[in-house]
Amino acid sequence: MTVHTVQLRINGEVTTVDVKAHWSLAYVIREKVGLTGTKTGCEMGTCGSCTVLLDEKPIFSCLRMAVDAEGHEIQTIEGVEVENGGELHPLQKSFIELHGMQCGFCTPGMILAAKALLENNPDPSEQEVREAIGGHLCRCGTYVRIVRSILDAAQAVRAS
């Protein structure tokens, strides 16, 4: 199988990686670039834990071919703090304060999906928040406080 050399621009940094065609972006982010904040709960697009922002749009990185990710801006959960100059994003602060997590496994995906939502819709309704995370499972069942954290962060962003 041919190996493709690709330049992936992740969180503002370019990494050159040799990838096999069938490798997912999630696999490459985790195993080759070493950013393990992106999770691979199911590897088939049914849980939301692998969500990254690709050109500011949320996608499932487990369904994206790594070899098809060149030439785009990719943001993983690690990039959120980086983008903010080392400061936590209001979403991250709200999730911490309001307990928007229990085991934390779904948290990176939830935060990135919410981030994309707030960038397009700074004053979402509760229903809009739930739809933005519609494809995200939380087996710990923290939906109550996840939604609350996102709405709280939206308010904080609007106030600032």
């Binding site: 690709l54 749009k57 519609g134």
Partner: peptide, 9 residues
């Protein structure tokens, strides 16, 4: 289709 990530791809 309430899965935004799939709708984007």
């Amino acid at each position: 289709l309430k899965i935004n990530e799939v709708r984007n791809a």
